[in-house]
């Protein structure tokens, strides 16, 4: 039996899952605080905007967005299979394209900062 090529899609899924578990709750909390005007000075809009202007920060943000979206897409694909939707290739194509489109959108926005 040949070794599977599944690691191509599973690698970013695992990385994204780990990232989401640790980062997303903190991001949601900070974003909410910032939106309500309760963020500490360090997380003020101007400072975050300036930070996102740096190429390294843009790369990191694009990475976070890609891995999170990919992780969610892959989880959705597996869930569909477990729920009895056996058109795996179609499901995989749709969810991965959505994840890649979302990443593309994020990259475009980041480039315009």
């Amino acid at each position: 039996m040949a070794r599977s090529n599944k690691p191509i899609v599973w690698g970013p899924f695992a990385a994204g899952g780990t990232l989401t578990a640790f980062l997303s709750p903190a991001l949601i909390l900070l974003t909410l605080l910032a939106a309500l005007g309760h963020a500490p000075d360090l997380f003020a809009y101007d400072r975050l905007h300036a930070l996102a202007g740096h190429w390294l920060a843009r790369l990191a943000l694009a990475g976070v967005v890609f891995l999170s979206l990919w992780s969610a897409a892959h989880r959705l694909r597996i869930t569909c299979y477990d729920l009895g939707v056996r058109a795996d290739t179609l499901v995989a194509s749709v969810v991965y394209v959505v994840a890649l489109a979302g990443t593309g959108g994020a990259v475009l926005y980041l480039a315009r900062i």
Binding site: M1, A2, R3, S4, K6, W10, I78, Y81, D82
Partner: peptide
């Protein structure tokens, strides 16, 4: 062992239920 474990019907059929 990887020839079996890393195959499609090895670990990759698991969806971590």
């Amino acid at each position: 062992r990887q020839e079996e474990l890393a195959a499609t019907n090895g670990v990759w059929d698991c969806s971590f239920v």
